[in-house]
Design a protein around this nucleic acid. Structure first.
Length: 401
DNA sequence: CGTAGGGTTAAGGATT
DNA sequence: AATCCTTAACCCTACG
């Protein structure tokens, strides 16, 4: 109505966002060549929303148009369903790591990275904004849900997810906030730490990641052990003993029978999860955490690497006891692999180089600090990198201070 | 400092 | 063409 002045400022910051590096200058420029898998962006319109051409979001504008002053600020593409779902599920995975009194930037960085890995080119800021907008929508929807809002649209499924996250949160009580990624020492606390990104997971296997992204034999890069049987988690079911897992996980939050009666008898709610040559059946009667643990257990995932399930349509599904039964493919974060040169005191030439794979910003920081470095420097250049985000896969770096 | 959370602005497609 | 509607992106404030 009466707001005619101010576009200035807004416009500016928006442009800045895409062009000059306020937020992460989209990885594409510089030499961050995270090649996105050809921008999947399946264009399922988001709840009837429109997703015009192209599928490539904001960031590609600047390739041709660095900062022509009068660039008519384009807002980013509307998020498509898969994007939103992926975001929700990624956020869900690490929700307990968010700490209101500390910077969560690295967490959003990570989420953004994961998004990019899945072909969704969304900056951390875009992710936070989207998340916040989702929360707002959700709350608003909840307020006036009495009045005929009960459409079963995609949004409702977002809301379901969000509700669950919030439920988990409140259920876990304040503890999730202050005692951050609880150290793994001890019982139930351990499983609260998500399999997804165990940032605080020092100590175990600190050379980290003995399991590089792709092993020489070509088998998928997990530290799968030979025996792929289940060892313990009640929801991890082998093909042979699917019936045995009556397990309701210790973290089973839902008392309410939900839809219909919820008996103790195992009602066969099992999904099939495939990874490479291995197929396992996983019971999904527990909480998201429990299901995750079951998957880890079944496939012997002992890494901090992110993993996720995609259904037969390649849609990333969040782990949920209500998730549709069926066949899923397990995907594991491939990490970001670079080469690092090591020098001897006197010798100007590198003694040896080593491949190094990072899965999280914390991996990266930990790696640096363990060697007394503050950043990495490109091997034949002088640019320093103190964030994993800026590293270029396969490039060569050396430690620097 | 940072975050959450609420509000606001405006881009841009859809509808009339 | 005008209007409506959705939603990305921004602003502000309280709170820790």
């Amino acid at each position: 109505m009466y707001m005619s002045e101010k576009p200035q400022q807004q416009q500016e910051s928006a442009i800045d966002f895409y062009n000059s590096g306020k937020q992460e200058p989209p990885h594409q420029n510089n030499n961050m060549i995270i090649q996105l898998p050809s921008q999947p962006h399946h264009h399922l319109a988001d709840g009837g929303a429109t997703t015009p051409s192209g599928g490539i979001t904001a960031t590609n504008h600047n390739s041709s148009n660095p900062s022509s002053s009068s660039a008519p600020k384009k807002r980013a593409e509307t998020w498509v369903q898969e994007e939103t779902r992926t975001l929700i599920s990624l956020r869900k995975e690490i929700d307990m790591l968010f700490n209101t009194s500390k910077s969560n930037k690295h967490l959003w960085d990570n989420i953004s990275l994961k998004m990019r890995e899945k072909g969704f080119d969304r900056s951390p800021t875009m992710c936070t904004d989207k998340w916040r907008n989702l929360l707002k929508e959700f709350k608003k929807a909840k307020q006036n849900n009495q009045d005929g809002n009960g459409n079963g649209s995609a949004k409702m499924s977002y809301y379901k997810e969000i509700e669950e996250i919030l439920r988990e949160r409140s259920k876990n009580g304040p503890s999730w906030k202050n005692s951050e990624a609880s150290n793994n020492a001890g019982g139930a606390g351990a499983s609260k730490v998500d399999s997804f990104m165990q940032f605080a997971d020092k100590g175990i296997d600190d050379t980290g990641l003995t399991f590089g992204p792709v092993e020489a034999n070509g088998r998928s890069a997990l530290n799968l052990e030979r025996r792929l049987d289940h060892d313990g988690h009640p929801l991890a079911i082998t093909a042979a003993d699917a019936v045995g897992a009556s397990g309701v996980s210790p973290w089973n939050w839902r008392e309410t029978p939900g839809s219909g009666e919820q008996t103790n008898t195992y009602d066969g709610r099992v999904i099939t999860v495939k990874l490479g040559d291995y197929t396992k059946r996983i019971g999904i009667d527990g909480s998201a955490e429990a299901i995750k643990e079951a998957i880890k257990s079944a496939f012997r995932l002992r890494t901090r690497r992110a993993f996720w399930l995609e259904d037969e349509d390649n849609v990333v599904r969040s782990l949920d006891r209500d998730m549709p039964l069926g066949n899923y493919t397990l995907h594991v974060d491939e990490g970001l692999t670079i080469k690092v040169c090591f020098y001897e005191e006197s010798d100007p030439l590198p003694v040896h180089t080593e491949d190094k794979t990072f899965y999280t910003e914390d991996d990266f920081r930990e790696f640096l600090s363990r060697r007394g470095w503050t950043c990495l420097r490109e091997y034949n250049g002088y640019r320093n990198f103190d964030s994993m985000d800026e590293l270029c896969p396969g490039a060569i770096y050396r430690g620097s201070n």
